[in-house]
């Protein structure tokens, strides 16, 4: 089953493949760096910064149609922002990393077909 759903992006760009590629490529640039940042911030207990990174990723995950990660990234933002359940953050970030990496592979493949 596909981890991405490009329905929103297709509608937003009105089927303009160049624009779709542009946004996908932006996400492919941003996501790995953001994941590395989140891991480091969590390890160093820089929760306020972690919240900001998760906050920025949240709408982007939605635009790329990675539906099953929307709740996960919201929880990372919420836990880091409220500094509660912080013991769960490592696991949540690890899950996000695994799933987002797979989704990025799909996005990359989808973009190459455009």
């Amino acid at each position: 089953m596909s981890l991405i759903d490009l329905t929103f992006l297709q509608g937003f760009t009105k089927g303009d493949n160049a624009k779709m590629k542009k946004y996908i490529s932006m996400f492919l640039d941003i996501a790995p760096k953001s994941i590395t940042d989140m891991e480091a911030m969590n390890q160093e207990k820089r929760y306020d910064e972690l919240k900001v990174v998760a906050h920025s990723l949240k709408p982007q995950v939605s635009y790329m149609g990675i539906k099953h990660l929307e709740t996960n990234i919201k929880e990372i933002e919420l836990f880091a922002g409220s500094k509660t359940n912080t013991e769960q953050l490592a696991e949540k970030i690890a899950y996000f990393k695994t799933e987002c990496t797979k989704a990025c592979e799909e996005l990359s493949s989808a973009a190459s077909k455009l």
Partner: peptide
Amino acid sequence: DDTMQGEMVKDHLTGK
């Protein structure tokens, strides 16, 4: 300050 978000809003409004 978020490049992707900014670009999307800009493209959307330019399209209008």
